[in-house]
Every structure is written in C-alpha cells, then in structure tokens.
Design a protein around this nucleic acid. Structure first.
Lengths: 246, 246
DNA sequence: CTAGCATTCAAACAAACGTTTAACTGAATC
DNA sequence: GATTCAGTTAAACGTTTGTTTGAATGCTAG
C-alpha cells in the first residue's frame, strides 16, 4: 500500500529527476508549522499548502496526522539521542579509569542539542522549540512516543550522573534530572517567553549556543546542591523515606 | 449586553435559589478540560457538557473561547501573584535592615504556589499544570496575556533577587530567573512527564508540596552558581569549542 | 399587570477539520 | 504493448468547530 521509501539515487544512474521528494517537503513544512502553532492548532491543509503538495499526500505517506507528527520528531530526535549516547561513551572511555565529572556528563547531553540548534539548514533552531513544546503536551500519543524515544538515553545518562554524584540518593537524582530536563526544554521552547523576564539585547535572544552555556553552570550547581530537608515529610503519614541508597 | 456579575447573596434575603452560578460552573469545567487537553484540543461543547450549561452561555458570559481561557487563568493567577508580592514585602519588612537571602525570596515565590497546589477544593493541583502548559504555548494571545499578568510580579522579584545576589550581573540574573521559571513551570506542568525519568513511588508523584521542597534547593544552588565562562562569545567568532568542563 | 432586563435555550450558521475515495499519471517489468 | 504499481490528484466524505440568532424564561420594579 504505502511505505515505499524514496530511493535517493546518490550514485549516477538516474539523475534525480523529481523536483523534490514529497515526503521531505511535508516533513519540513510540518516541522515549521507544528513549531509555530503546536500540534492541535496546525491543520493538514496548512501543511500541504506550505509544502505545495496534495492534501492526501499526508495520509498516503504517513498514515495520519499523529504519525506525521511522530515522523517530524523522529527525524531529528533519533540521531540526536544516538549522538548523545555515543558522546557520553567516548567521554567515559577517554576519562577512564577516572569517573566522569558532572559537568562532563551534562556536556555530553548539551553538545548534540547545540549542534542541532546551530544546523539552521535543517530546521535546527525551530525544532528545539517544537521539542520543548512536545514535552509539555499531555496528549497520550505524544507522551508515549517521547518516553519511548528517550527511555534508552535517559537511563544511560541517569547511570552516568549517578556515578558522578555518588553522594546523591537515587530518588533525589531522579528529581533533579527532571528539573534539568525542565529548565532545558523550557529554555529551548520559549524564545518568546524570554521577553517576559529579561531585558536582553536582540543579539542574545535566539542565540541558543550562548544560552546553553549559561544554562550549564546553573544546572551543575543545582545537581550538586546539598540535600533538601524533608524531615517534615518523614514525620507525617506513610513516610516518604528518602531512598537510603547513596 | 453582557458583563453583569452575579450577585452571590451571601446574606439572608434571597436564599440562593439558583442551583449554581453558571459562570463558575463554566470556569470549573473549562479549567479541568484545558488542563487535561490544552486550549486548542478542548472544545466549547465539551466544556458546556461537563458544566451542564447551554453552549451559548460561554459566548454570553465570556465573549469567546479565548476570553474564557484568560478568565480561567486570571481567576487563580491574579490572587496568587498578589499574594507573592505581599509575602515578599512582608519578608523584607521583617528582615530589615538586613537584605533578604536568596532562599527567602524564592520562598516568597513558592509559598503561594504551594498554597494553591494544596487547595484541592478549588482546582489547585490541576491549575498549576494548566499554567505550566500555558507557559510553553506560543499562541500570541496567551503570551500577551501572561506577560501582562506577570510583569509586575516578575519585576518586583527580579529586584529582590538582585539585592540578595549583588555579585550577579543583571543580565545573568535575567537568564537565571528564566531558568528558574522554566524548571518551576515544567515541573508543575508535567505530572505525566515524571514517569519519563523517575522510578517514583505513586505516593510521591502528584505531591506538589514535596516536589517544590525538592526543587527549591536545586534552584537556589543554581542561582548562586559561579559565573559561566563566556569569553568565547566576546571574541566574536562562532567557534564551536566544547565547553572546557572537568 | 406590564415593562424591562438578565439569562437560558434549541437551533442553525458557515467554515474548517482529518480522512477516504476513485480516477489518473508515468515509468519500470514482463 | 500490456501490466503493474508507487505516487499524485481533485473531490467529496461525515464530523466537529466557534459563534450567532431569536424566541422563551423568570425575576424585579413601576
């Protein structure tokens, strides 16, 4: 039926006669519009109009609007997370037998995101905002998709962080990683939101590179923070113990 | 035409014959549904069905779907931000002539949010998630509304933070406040997202109180972090150096 | 009683939605 | 030259959307 995968004849035989592969035109348009208006607020007609393809092409190539959305995310997310893991592995190998520092682990998370943000040619800047938005979206299919996409990477990095912060209980680390992801995705999502707080020079806003370099020390300090006093929670009912672990 | 303000006869004259003021029923239903599905994905028909009122009542009482959304936010946000400012002022008065500590300023931000999270009777828990979602929404009318709602409070707190962190340049403080708001709203928005990272006991998830007590030390440490090395940005070149670390 | 007024209601509005259909294209395969 | 099949197309599918209308309702005041 569908699912044919365009051939992309990178060798010489067929001189790539097609104007542009429809599938990619749709993905590019969808990425731009999903980024700007979100999933629900973007219609397939807007997408196909911008992509200059037929409306039915979406159903044909992707099946549904939801599957299109997943394809838009996968296209960039999958390589980025793969890079993150590869980078972390390389860092660990280079540092061996020393344990990786917390900063270094965070760096392995940031560099691929940074590279994507810089890759203006292929949507970069905008895509990270789309991702940040997806993180806050409660739609079940988005949540399911994201946790599947991120599960491997998160577990890998959680283990690395645990090694570099041995004094931190497992549960506390989980929370702090959550905060890290929060600040990161919110920061990436909210170019507009910046104006809420800051009197920033126009040069600064939209400069994701500098942004992430400012974010990193903030997060590292947070990760290394002393443990919170949760005594008031132990006193009460079912005892929210703080995971003796270490 | 509209805008009549229900009388709420709290005294004895008319024994409150109306079953429930329509306006509040709509607000409650809208809050619950906007929280769960977001603004675009929630229809007025879902709202009026849940509220058990006529469809046209929304247009009559609020004018439009967008104005209803703003009313839902205002109802809780306005008092909360007023409380925040009042609390900060009280703290400052009590501490005078000493400067307020960074923790203390953050506490003034958190306590009203915490109180709202606890107020289960009036939507609390769910509302904070709705708010976190709104923060990530790029819809112009939402962005405009939020910055109007927050402008006063943010400026007030920014000044307070500046006093308690005198060594921090203004611009750096702006960024860090942005990160703080990011971690906060993402954390409040993402009860579901928690499961992405953590192996948390069911008791823990959804316990916003403990959550904020874990978040506070994380953010204080971030606010107090040493300044980042931004020398590479002064240089001018794009230079993808990989963040010295370790 | 009557007039005024705020509120509710069922019904309808045009517009836009995601998805499906069936006809058609054009190049490759036998 | 007929067949096959991935790809494209215009048109229509049945829903659902936010908003508007005009008549009904019930209370308050003159």
């Amino acid at each position: 039926m569908k699912q044919t995968q365009i051939v992309t004849p990178s060798n010489g035989m067929t001189p790539s006669r097609g104007p542009t592969p429809t599938k990619n035109r749709i993905l590019d348009a969808a990425e731009a519009l999903f980024m700007e208006h979100g999933f629900e607020a973007t219609s397939l007609r807007q997408i196909t109009a911008l992509a200059e393809v037929n409306l039915a092409a979406v159903s044909y190539h992707f099946g549904s609007k939801e599957e299109l959305f997943e394809a838009v995310l996968t296209r960039r997310l999958d390589p980025m997370n793969r890079e993150r893991i590869a980078l972390l592995t390389r860092f660990e190998r280079e540092a061996a037998p020393e344990v990786l520092s917390c900063e270094r682990v965070l760096t392995a998370m940031f560099i691929p995101a940074l590279a994507l943000a810089r890759d203006r040619e292929r949507g970069g800047q905008n895509f990270l905002r789309l991702l940040g938005r997806a993180y806050a979206d409660p739609a079940p299919f988005i949540r399911r998709f994201l946790s599947e996409q991120y599960a491997v990477m998160i577990l890998r990095f959680k283990a690395a962080f645990a090694r570099s912060l041995p004094q931190l209980p497992k549960k506390e680390l989980s929370w702090r990683l959550h905060f890290v992801m929060g600040a990161l995705s919110y920061t990436l999502a909210g170019t507009d939101a910046l104006k809420l707080i800051a009197a920033l020079s126009p040069r600064d806003a939209g400069n994701d590179e500098m942004l992430l370099h400012r974010l990193a020390p903030f997060l590292v300090a947070g990760l290394k923070a002393p443990l919170p006093d949760l005594s008031e929670f132990d006193g009460g009912g079912v005892s929210a113990r703080q995971a003796g672990g270490s």
